[in-house]
Write a protein that binds this DNA or RNA. Structure first.
Lengths: 121, 121
DNA sequence: CTGATCTACAACCATTTGGTTGTACGATAC
DNA sequence: GTATCGTACAACCAAATGGTTGTAGATCAG
């Protein structure tokens, strides 16, 4: 009998840490939405929010480290664009959780089915 | 000409903040996976990780506040279960981003189509 | 060239986070 | 009853976070 191989230390996935941490701030989620729809310079973004340029700059840096956004120099501006890869990685994890949920649901259904069989002659 | 109605203050969605912040830690993601697959008591969970009971207790509390997990008292134990609602809320946001991405993609396709028309007689 | 614009980055500060230990209390086992 | 188990919670600590101001380097406009 193979006992569930318990991993005492959960896989330290720094990439996922950064991804979800990056998405845990409303300003950053807003930036992601905007630069996914179109292009913005950093100062273009900074103009949208009631905070300093440097603060927005930091938010963009957090998003870039999380692969949710890319920066590309164009003249003296830095153009920020949405990065689909990061989004997909986050979606993938949630999809896995969804699968676990469904497996559990179907396992319960199986058990109920077994009970039904027991009831039958 | 209607200039894009800029929302200077991005919608402060504390629920989403908590959701993604809760998912930004590997131990908590592991807990979510486990309690979504089956039931665990808090001390049952605590036995899995190389940290104190109180630390795991805090992680569960964070997950509970984020609606990713529910606790239910059973005897002297506290049973932790996965909460599908929280997961779906997080998935919904990422799906919205995915939609924005696709809209942008199709908008670009439209522009290319217009260019093609110009090329035609 | 000069001045304005866009960006980068350091230094600083208050608050939050993720961990610890210690204490207290209800439920269970003996 | 008493001892033990599972939990809750407070107090504490180091590090990270989210913001600020200030300084300095590129790039563009006139």
């Amino acid at each position: 009998m193979v006992v569930d191989q318990l991993t005492p230390i959960p896989e330290r996935d720094v990439e996922l840490d950064r991804l979800f941490q990056a998405l845990s701030d409303a300003t950053r989620r807003d930036i992601v939405a905007r630069v996914t729809a179109g292009e913005y310079s950093v100062s273009g973004l900074a103009g949208l929010y009631a905070m300093s340029f440097a603060a927005v700059q930091k938010h963009v840096a957090v998003l870039e480290r999380a692969s949710l956004v890319t920066k590309e120099k164009r003249g003296r501006e830095q153009i920020v664009r949405g990065n689909h890869d990061g989004l997909q990685k986050a979606r993938h994890l949630l999809d896995q959780f969804e699968m676990i949920w469904r497996q559990r649901a179907s396992r319960i259904a199986d058990i109920l089915a077994e009970d039904d069989e027991r009831d039958l002659p």
